[in-house]
Write a protein that binds this DNA or RNA. Sequence first.
DNA 1: AAGAAGTTTGGACCGCCGGTCCAACTCCAA
DNA 2: TTGGAGTTGGACCGGCGGTCCAAACTTCTT
Lengths: 224, 224
Amino acid sequence: MMDMTIPTPRNTRRSDALSRDRIVEAAVEVLDATGEAGLTVRALTAHLSTGRGAIYHHVANKEGLLAAAADDIVGRVTAGVGDDEDPEQAIRALALGIFDAIDAHPWVGTQLSREPWQPAVFRIWKSVGSQLQRLGVPGPARADAGSALVNYVLGAAAQYAAGARRVTSDADRKAYLETLAAQWAQHDPDPVVQDAASQLHEHDDREQFLAGVDIFLTGITARR
Amino acid sequence: MMDMTIPTPRNTRRSDALSRDRIVEAAVEVLDATGEAGLTVRALTAHLSTGRGAIYHHVANKEGLLAAAADDIVGRVTAGVGDDEDPEQAIRALALGIFDAIDAHPWVGTQLSREPWQPAVFRIWKSVGSQLQRLGVPGPARADAGSALVNYVLGAAAQYAAGARRVTSDADRKAYLETLAAQWAQHDPDPVVQDAASQLHEHDDREQFLAGVDIFLTGITARR
DNA sequence: AAGAAGTTTGGACCGCCGGTCCAACTCCAA
DNA sequence: TTGGAGTTGGACCGGCGGTCCAAACTTCTT
C-alpha cells in the first residue's frame, strides 16, 4: 500500500541549536520537576520544542541520557571534595555531599544503583579510592574497604531516594513514619520489631547515614 | 459506535485452579528464565495459559508481583539463619545467604533496592536486628548499626546483580573484567585508577563482599 | 553565484507494555 | 433446577522507547 500521508511543512530553523549538553540539561530539569517516571522522550521533546528524531540524533538512548544526567549531578559533588583536609573528614564530606544531592534529586539515587560501571559511579569509586590512599590503607585492603564504603553509600542512597520519592513535605514524613510504626507493631509481636517501631519517630535519615559512615571508618582504622 | 467483535467461545474450565501463590511461583520461574525485563504480564499469561484478567483478579499489579517474588526468595534465606550459633557468624551467614540468592536470581538484587518497605527488605531488617541484639548492641546504637549493615548489603546486592545480569559465564566474566581494566587504564592516568585496574583481574566478588561485612562488624564491635 | 554534498530536524510509524473492562463460563447453595 | 457469586479470557486503551526518512538548513566546491 502506498504512503498517503503528507508531512506538514517545516517552519523556520530553531534559533537555539540543539546539542547533547542542552539535552542533558533539559533532562535534569524534567527529572527534577516530574521525577524519574516523568522523564519520557516525549516529555523531553515537548520541553525542548522539538521532535524525537532530533533527540536521538544526539543521544543513543534513554539509558545513556539518565547516566549522563546522574553524572552531571555527581560530578558537581566530587569536584567539591578536595585534598586539603583530613582524609577522614574528606570521606565524610563526600558521603554527605552525595546524600544531600540525592535528597535534592531523588532520581539520582535510583540511577546510581542501576548500573555499576556508569561514569557517575566511577567518579565515586575514584574519589573514595584516593581518600583511602591518603588515609594510608594499603593496596589490597584498599579494594575491600573502597567496595564496602561505595556499596554502603549506594545502598543507602537508593533506599533514601525511594523514601524521598514517596514523601514530599516534612509533615507528610512524620505522619508516614507513624503509620509505618503502627503497621509494624501490629503486624509482628517480636520484641525487636516493637522496639524498632517505638524508636522510629525520632529517626533522622541524615544522622543515621553519617553514623553508618563512622562505623565504616572505625572498622577501617581498627583493622589497619 | 457499536461493538462488532465476536468473542471466541470458551473451552472447558482449567483443571489447575489459579491462585495468588501459583501466580507468584510462575513469576519466579519467568524471572529466572528470562530476567527482570522478561517478566511481562503477557509472558506470564502465556506461561500460565490464561488471560490477563485472571491474573489481575488475584494480583494488584506488577509491582506487587515483584515484591512477592522477592519475598519468596528472601524468606527462604532468612528462615535458614537460626539463633544457635555465634551472632557474628549468624550475620555472616545471613549476608552470604543473600549474596548467593542474588547470584542465583539477579532480579532479586534489583528489586530489593527499589522499595525500602517491601516485605522482603523488612525480613532482612528484622533478621539483622535480632542478631545485633544478641550481639549486645544497645537500642539506639542498634538502629545505626542495623541501618549501616542493611544498606551495605542492599547496595552490594544491587551492584553485583547488575554485574551478574551483564555476564553469564565465568569465561565471559574474565574477558569482561580485562576489557574494563583496559578502558579504565586508558581513559584515566590517575595512579589510583591505574592501580585499581591492575588489581581487577584477581578480584572475587564473593570474597570482597564478605570482607565488607567484616569491616562493618569490626566497626560495630569496636564502638560497643 | 550557484549548486552539490553533508548535517540537523520534526514527526509518522512500529511493536510492545501495564492496566481496565466486561461478557461468558463454572460452581454451588437453595 | 435455577440463579447468584466467584472466576476467567481476551478485546481494548493510552502511552512508551526506538526507527526511519524526507524536508530544511549549512557548508563546501567550483
